[in-house]
C-alpha cells in the first residue's frame, strides 16, 4: 500500500495507476476501492483468491465496464470511463482469459489486423488504395518477424481456428505485440496451458519486456510463474489492495498468506 506515492518525481515512471476504484453489481461491491500503480517497463503481477475482483478490475481498466468511482490513469492521463477502443488506442491492450482468436482468418491476418493505423478507412478504399498497400508491406514484415519469434511462422497461412490451445495462446500474445502497446494487460494467460508452454510464454514475456520495454500487468493464478517473472506483485482481496511487494516478501506477510490461501498455506504458496 505504501508504494503509492504522491511524490511527483516518481509519478513520471508510472505507466498505469489505479486509485480508489469502485464497482458494484446490484449492491454487492466487486471492486471496493482498489489502488495500485505499475511502473514503466516492469512486469507486475496481480494476484488474489477467486472472487477477489480481478476479472472486474481487468474489465474496468480496459473499459469493458464503467467504474462507479475512482481513477484509472495511463501515463498520467485519466482513462476511467472511456470506451474500450479509446483505451486500446491510447496504448493499453488487454488479452482475454479464454483465447479469442479470429477463427476464420489466417494466423498472418490475425496479426496484421491487430496493428494500429492500417488505413482502414472507406475513403482509402475509394480513392487511395495505395495507402493501405504501403502500410501492409510494413505490417507484413513486422508480422513475419513476430511469427518467427513466437515459432508460429510455419502456421502463418493456417486458419486460426485450426490451431491447438497452446498455439492459440502464443497467437494471442504475438497479436498483442503487433499493436505496439505501452501497457499489456494479460488476463490469466497461463490458464489451461501445459507447464512447458507456461515456461515458454514466460520467456516471451520477459523477452518482450527487455527488447521493446513493454510494461506488463499479469493477472495470474499460477504463482510459480508470477514469482519467476514479476518484479512486483500486487495482492488483491475482497476488491481492495491487500499488499504489494516481491513474491518473497509477500510470502512472509501473514495477512496475505491468510487472506489469500486460508488455512494450510505454506505448501501451496510453495517453498
Amino acid at each position: 500500500m505504501a508504494t503509492i506515492s504522491n511524490d511527483p518525481s516518481t509519478q513520471v515512471n508510472v505507466a498505469l495507476e489505479v486509485e480508489s476504484l469502485k464497482k458494484s453489481f446490484g449492491g454487492v461491491a466487486a471492486v471496493d476501492g482498489v489502488s495500485f500503480s505499475v511502473e514503466k517497463g516492469t512486469i507486475t503481477g496481480l494476484i488474489g483468491p477467486n472472487g477477489a475482483g480481478k476479472s472486474t478490475m481487468v474489465n474496468l481498466i480496459s473499459g469493458a465496464l464503467k467504474p462507479d468511482s475512482g481513477h484509472i490513469r495511463l501515463d498520467g492521463h485519466e482513462i476511467g470511463g472511456l470506451e474500450p477502443h479509446q483505451i486500446g488506442a491510447r496504448g493499453l491492450i488487454r488479452t482475454f482469459q479464454i483465447s479469442r482468436e479470429y477463427p476464420d482468418m489466417t494466423v498472418m491476418e490475425n496479426l496484421i489486423v491487430s496493428a494500429a493505423n492500417q488505413g482502414e478507412r472507406l475513403i482509402n478504399v475509394c480513392f487511395r488504395p495505395s495507402v493501405g498497400k504501403k502500410r501492409d508491406r510494413e505490417l507484413v514484415e513486422r508480422a513475419l518477424h513476430t511469427l518467427v519469434t513466437f515459432g508460429l511462422y510455419p502456421l502463418r497461412n493456417e486458419y486460426a481456428r485450426n490451431l491447438s490451445g497452446g498455439q492459440k495462446r502464443l497467437l494471442e500474445l504475438s497479436r498483442a505485440v503487433m499493436a505496439d502497446p505501452k501497457v499489456l494487460l494479460l488476463d490469466e494467460p497461463m490458464a489451461g496451458v501445459n507447464p512447458a508452454l507456461i515456461e515458454k510464454l514466460g520467456e516471451h514475456i520477459v523477452g518482450l519486456n527487455k527488447e521493446l520495454g513493454t510494461t506488463f500487468v499479469l493477472v495470474e493464478h499460477n504463482l510459480e510463474i508470477v514469482e519467476k517473472i514479476c518484479s512486483k506483485v500486487i495482492v488483491v482481496a475482497l476488491g481492495a489492495t491487500l499488499a504489494v511487494g516481491t513474491m518473497a516478501e509477500l510470502r512472509k506477510n501473514q495477512a496475505v498468506v491468510e487472506a489469500y490461501l486460508g488455512g494450510d498455506v505454506r505448501e501451496r504458496v510453495g517453498s
Binding site: 477502443h85 486500446g88 499493436a179
Partner: peptide, 17 residues
C-alpha cells in the same frame, strides 16, 4: 480485413483500439 475481424470477434477488435 478489420470488418472480418469484427465478424469473428467484435470485443477483441474493440480491445485493440
Amino acid at each position: 480485413r478489420v470488418m472480418r475481424a469484427v465478424r469473428d470477434d467484435q470485443d477483441v477488435v474493440e480491445a485493440f483500439g
